[in-house]
């Protein structure tokens, strides 16, 4: 078992993008790797396309804390609207980010962030990464419903919190067996994703490709440099 620091991850997206599923896959993978982890979904009656959040805590030490991750060191933004259309409830969208933290944003191109936000991010020595997750998901897995997997690929490209083997096993478990408990709308989306593939194993293979492709498509963006313009 490898030793890692506390990693508190906040995933912000819109309902139906699979932020909850992504959190589940990531947390389970960490658990398989022998790490301590807990997964909290967003708590609520959110419907499709409403702002939604989920949280993963990973550490080599026992994690007790429950609830929202208020002070994340990684924030994953599943949809540019979270930032550009204010579809999140924290102001600014990276509120609570720890010093040296990471922002991973699903967008085809860098977003024009407000000067003030850039200044704050630079002060925090935050790293910003962009990954065109939806675009890659559509290209590689043939569906934008796999955006969440592409986001996990992006994260894996930045920091390897779990092994790739466990990620795969975790996905097998999530999509393969009948045992997983999903809410009504999540289950419906699951069926839609699975409907694209003849077999679950094909879907998993595609997802693994997707993880790799997303990792390769990362671009880093330095808030401090941009500030000079």
């Amino acid at each position: 078992m490898k030793s890692i620091e506390k990693n508190f991850i906040r995933m912000s997206g819109l309902g139906g993008q699979g932020a909850v599923t992504a959190a589940h896959i990531l947390g389970s993978a960490a658990n398989k790797d022998g790490l301590e982890s807990t997964v909290n979904p967003f708590f609520g009656a959110e419907k499709r396309l409403a702002p939604a959040e989920s949280y993963v805590r990973i550490s080599s030490q026992k994690v007790y804390e429950k609830g929202e991750v208020l002070y994340p060191n990684t924030i994953m933004i599943f949809h540019p609207h979270v930032i550009t259309m204010g579809k999140c409830y924290t102001m600014p969208f990276f509120d609570g980010l720890q010093e040296g933290g990471v922002l991973l944003i699903n967008s085809d191109e860098p977003l024009s962030l407000r000067d003030e936000d850039l200044r704050l991010l630079a002060d925090l020595k935050a790293k910003i990464y962009y990954v065109p997750a939806t675009k890659i998901a559509t290209e590689v897995a043939g569906s934008e419903l796999s955006t969440n997997i592409a986001m996990l690929g992006g994260l894996y490209g930045i920091k390897k919190l779990t092994s790739i083997k466990s990620l795969k096993e975790s996905m097998m478990e999530r999509f393969g067996g009948g045992k997983f408990v999903a809410s009504g709308s999540t289950a419906a989306l699951d069926d839609a994703v699975k409907g694209k593939f003849a077999k679950v194993s094909q879907m998993i293979e595609k997802n693994m490709e997707l993880i790799e492709a997303a990792g390769a498509a990362l671009t880093e963006f330095c808030p401090a440099e941009e500030k000079e313009d």
């Binding site: 997964v39 909290n40 708590f43 429950k66």
Partner: peptide
């Protein structure tokens, strides 16, 4: 059990 904190949190 505290709702969500316990019911919906995935843990060992």
């Amino acid at each position: 059990a505290d709702g969500f904190f316990v019911t919906h949190t995935r843990d060992r």
